[in-house]
Nucleic acid binder design. Structure first.
Lengths: 223, 223
DNA sequence: CCATCCAAAATTGGTACCAATCTAGGAGAA
DNA sequence: TTCTCCTAGATTGGTACCAATTTTGGATGG
């Protein structure tokens, strides 16, 4: 047969490029729902996640729950014990330090490139994100604060032009901050964080790479 | 009731701390099997992985195959298209560069600590691993070489004392090297790599952190 | 009173089946 | 012939069921 490429009406289908996909209907993936409930402190460290409970809570089939739990286990957010089930991972102190160390290496490592690449628009954008975090201290929930913080750091990382880095860092952050966000930090610490966000933008604008690196290091270490 | 902690014969059960678990019977997980077949080039880039084929090939139930494919999709080694199946991810050039960049940041970032921590035993061990790689150039398969290389770098990272770093780097490596190992590199490049392994051990023994960093950077970039 | 043992209930996890969807290939019209 | 439409086959993916394992709570014996 000759016509190897007949033209047919091709239905383009969206592929899953995201890590945690959302259904096109706006129905969020069960993985994300469970993760949020862990981060919000609803499921504390060590809690057992029973499949039936999750099934009824999120209104999903057993299958989707099982898949979600397996994914969270791969990300080491929950732990799987055969024939016993899944429970929320207990973050070790040493482990948290190790992960912070990795984040420091990555988030400071890209700073030279970030300083080089940042445009005036980028800096405006970062300022907006820093402001958003600041305003949420008073009027937002802890979860919103947590996400605003993620957005700020994510935007900074994005400037490096390294598309893979974001997913790697996001994954790392998910691993530690599964500690209840409710008692994330004290109010004083949060306000200090907010100030540091603004300082970071200032240092970036001034092009002071070394001082920015040092600030990020302390910022992550105390977080 | 008063006795909150009654002593019963406790059956200790092994938990899954590894990323890709192997069953206690020595039956390897389907995820690992498929991954190896991808890395060995049996399933080339873009190939569709049909569930029935995998089922018969590995002698596993449909369920385990599905779980394995989902895990590989989470790791971005395969891509999932709804109602069409899973196919081997096509590695982008830019993406490979980005991942190499991340590896450089991490593997050079820990060098100060590695230099500080390394004992004479550690150095002997590294030499042995470098020798093993060298000897496999002649008598080993490409897959064995690939794994020996992983072992060498893994041992080096291990010296940093950062337990999390290994899993992060291992995951990164899996993402790029899903390109067929068969045509991994030319013979000349492999021999150069082997030489560099030895040089790295030498520099580590001499305590020359900066030169070691530079060598690792070029080593990763050309790999 | 306390530890041990046993049976019932609950939970996990695998297998089989079936509906929804897509692809391949042939029949029919221009 | 060449394009379009349609049916048959293949594949994916969800649901339901059931076996294996564990936990719970009470009965039994020291």
């Amino acid at each position: 047969m000759n016509r190897q490429f007949a033209f047919r009406p091709v239905k383009v289908k969206q592929m899953n490029t995201q890590l945690d996909d959302t259904a096109p209907d706006g129905e969020p993936d069960a993985t994300q729902l469970i993760l949020t409930d862990i981060q919000s402190g609803l499921f504390p460290q060590g809690a057992w996640l029973k499949q039936i409970d999750l099934e009824t809570r999120y209104g999903r089939g057993r299958n989707e729950i099982r898949r979600a739990l397996d994914r969270l286990a791969q990300k080491r957010i929950v732990e799987h014990v055969p024939n016993r089930g899944y429970h929320v991972y207990k973050a070790d102190g040493k482990q948290a330090d190790d992960i912070a160390e990795i984040r420091i290496m990555l988030e400071t490592g890209i700073i030279p490139k970030v300083v080089e690449m940042a445009t005036a628009d980028d800096i405006r954008n970062l300022r907006a994100l820093a402001n958003r975090f600041e305003s949420l201290i008073l009027h937002g929930t802890m979860l919103e604060l947590y996400e605003a913080n993620l957005n700020f750091h994510g935007a900074l990382v994005q400037l490096s032009g390294n598309g893979e880095l974001n997913s790697v860092i996001a994954e790392l952050r998910q691993r530690t901050s599964s500690a209840p966000v409710s008692q994330w930090r004290t109010r004083a610490r949060i306000e200090k964080s907010s100030q540091e966000h603004h300082q970071m933008v200032d240092l970036l604008e001034a092009g002071k790479a070394d001082k920015l690196k040092a600030l990020i290091e302390t910022h992550i270490r105390q977080g």
